[in-house]
Amino acid sequence: MVLSKGEKAYQVGINIVLIIVTLVMILPIVLLFMCSITDENTLINNGYSFFPEKFGLTAYQYIWQNRGTVLRSYGLTIVVTVIGTACTLILTSLIAYPLSLRNLPGRPFFNFYVFFTMLFSGGLVPAYIMWTNTFHIKNTIFAYLLPNLLLSAYNIILVRTFFMTSIPDALYEAARIDGASYFTIYWKIVLPMGKPIMVTIGLFSGLGFWNDWTNGLYYVNRSEMFTTQVLLNRMIQDIQALANNPGGGSGSGALVNLPTVSIRMAIAFVAILPILVVYPFLQKYFASGIALGAVKG
């Protein structure tokens, strides 16, 4: 492809802007990593730096000592993320498609039914009572899947809007004339055409399941059922509690070997590490989804 002069200048310009944006986005995370491998005392005495004077791996040693628990939690997190994301995509698209059809009787009601849940919530306690007393999800895998994460009004509305704007009505009409059922249309037209948004939503909801620790906080209290985020968040909180409330102990030195600042950084880094590894692979699907929608460029 031959680019015009103006087009070339434009490409150079946007790439410079985007490289700066990328640096702004990535450098703090690099700093996070550097802090996590800095010697604790150097961190406190010399301050934060991209180029620490002295390295230390105590933070990772601390996590390594808990590796049994950490690895088991990774396994559970992966299961939860995969099942959760699959369910989310199916449920979201199944309701978004009918809602995107302008001639569906009762459409305003259903739209409102979905949207209203974004504004009002009964609060934590009533939901907690229902999930624990009626559905008995406490300390089961459902504790991570069912409350809140499975379906969000936000995603439904985004997908619905995308279907409405990006799938031409003419396609539907043609299909109807061919005698296709609604389900065939959903399967053969809506899902393929909606791939960009489905991939986006899948990514977000996957991240949602991966990063969620609130469900674990409320509904899980046995350590063998902790996901990575729940475990790491508890570790961070526990270390902080140890650092903030050492009083009253009788001096067994639980604190002496716990690095605080660097360990927080290390834990945070361990939590996002799998995403950093998997991300490029996801990115491939993501980009192909976009390429499918946009032939231009």
């Binding site: 906080l217 508890r234 509690a241």
Partner: peptide
């Protein structure tokens, strides 16, 4: 429970 979680857990 831990220091970080006791309030949330008791309040549910």
């Amino acid at each position: 429970v831990t220091y970080g979680t006791i309030d949330t857990n008791l309040n549910t």
